[in-house]
Write a protein that binds this DNA or RNA. Structure first.
Lengths: 234, 234
DNA sequence: GCTTCTATTTATAACCC
DNA sequence: TGGGTTATAAATAGAAG
């Protein structure tokens, strides 16, 4: 019988926490659904818990996808707003840095998977890899196989045997270390910030003029068959 | 004074609906936050309303991104689960159809923007376009300009004047109609389903063996500077 | 651990300004 | 239209089975 005013803090008692979670999750989902029907608005809720591996989603996966697609589009609108204000170029910088981060992440992923490949060659199993890892690993293996075949062909056509030797080293050489590799990572924040503010400001291209940038290499996604409807996360 | 048990239906009275919305949104956000702190779980909530162009997000954009990244990863896990069960190939089919849909959407988007371009040439303004539209329109315009320049160059080098005439028609010809264009759209469901079940079943490639598929052309995204951290929606 | 059962807190519909 | 008030409905903490 609700004695006290429940102080808002993490419930340390495990079973009490779980009980509260279940009750409140139910109540919350109800609230969301009521709000949506009463006011005729789009809403979704996603709740993760340590009690189930799948998150609780309202109204359902499809509905959430719809809302999330809107949500993803939003920052774009923010962009057009801020285009006229002072934040403009700092946002451009952020976008550029994000792009850099993405590229670097891709490279790191490739290195990571190369390392995994070498570990496999050393006898480690694939059990701990998820589907995404396996796909990326497959890609890396394929790239290496292509390189190997290319060199074998070159050798057959009378090139020196050093090509073939290089193939072997491709397979047994110690793997490269995975680095974060973002420019200026070791420097002081001030240095970095100054550079970041000053460097390359003339390149702010707003609007049209993107050449062939639309050809993208998206490393860890898009190349595996994905259940997620791409129309929602294009 | 809450006289009756509020029947759960869309509130037709505009101002009453808005008032209810504001109250319930507040309450809901509070509930979400309480749940999260009491039980120490990851949660996010996103509520769209006709009253503000930005959705209400809990806890904040970054937090939501974190949860959504998890959410996006989930279907992948479902995939690895279902790989061993009977749904396997039907899912493959869905993935394939999704890919087709995506491709078609891209084409439609291009046609749509071409239409918009012609409307602009006919004097309609750009006011109703959002940033995404503008970017895509810009891309279409650029493509056309490239084509035009190509033809001008060809003409300069002594080709017939018909090239130059073609340039003009490129700008004033009636735009192509936007079509949905998915295969089998006009056929009965049964026909479509049968085809869908039987056609191409030998192509189910699970695991490795993706050639150069990782080069992607993502039409309406990725080519504009995006505030959304790509690491979360790779 | 899970329900079910209240006492109590919390949310909020209707009202008012 | 938006912000406060209040009576009542709804949610739920804690206990018990």
């Amino acid at each position: 019988m609700t004695r006290k005013k429940v102080k808002l803090a993490f419930i340390t008692n495990d079973s009490a926490r779980k009980a509260t979670f279940k009750k409140r999750k139910k109540g919350l989902m109800k609230k969301v659904s009521e709000l949506s029907t009463l006011c005729g608005i789009d809403a979704c809720a996603i709740i993760y818990s340590p009690y189930e591996n799948q998150p609780e989603v309202w109204p359902n996966t499809m509905g959430a996808q719809h809302v999330l697609a809107e949500f993803k589009r939003m920052p774009e609108m923010e962009q057009s707003k801020k285009m006229v204000n002072q934040e403009s170029f700092i946002r451009q910088r952020i976008a550029k840095a994000s792009e850099q981060l993405k590229k670097q992440s891709k490279e790191n992923r490739e290195k990571e998977m190369t390392e995994v490949m070498y570990q496999c060659l050393a006898g480690k199993g694939l059990q701990n890899l998820n589907l995404g890892d396996l796909n990326d690993l497959g890609w890396v293996v394929d790239q290496n196989l292509k390189e190997i075949n290319k060199r074998i062909e070159a050798f057959k056509k009378g090139a020196s045997t050093s090509s073939s030797a290089a193939v072997v080293s491709l397979a047994v050489a110690p793997p490269p270390v995975v680095e974060l590799g973002l420019e200026g990572m070791q420097r002081t924040q001030t240095e970095w910030f100054n550079d970041w503010m000053n460097n390359n400001t003339s390149e702010q291209q707003i609007g049209f003029g993107h050449g062939d940038e639309m050809i993208m290499h998206n490393f860890s996604d898009n190349h595996n068959t994905n259940v997620w409807p791409n129309a929602f996360f294009p």
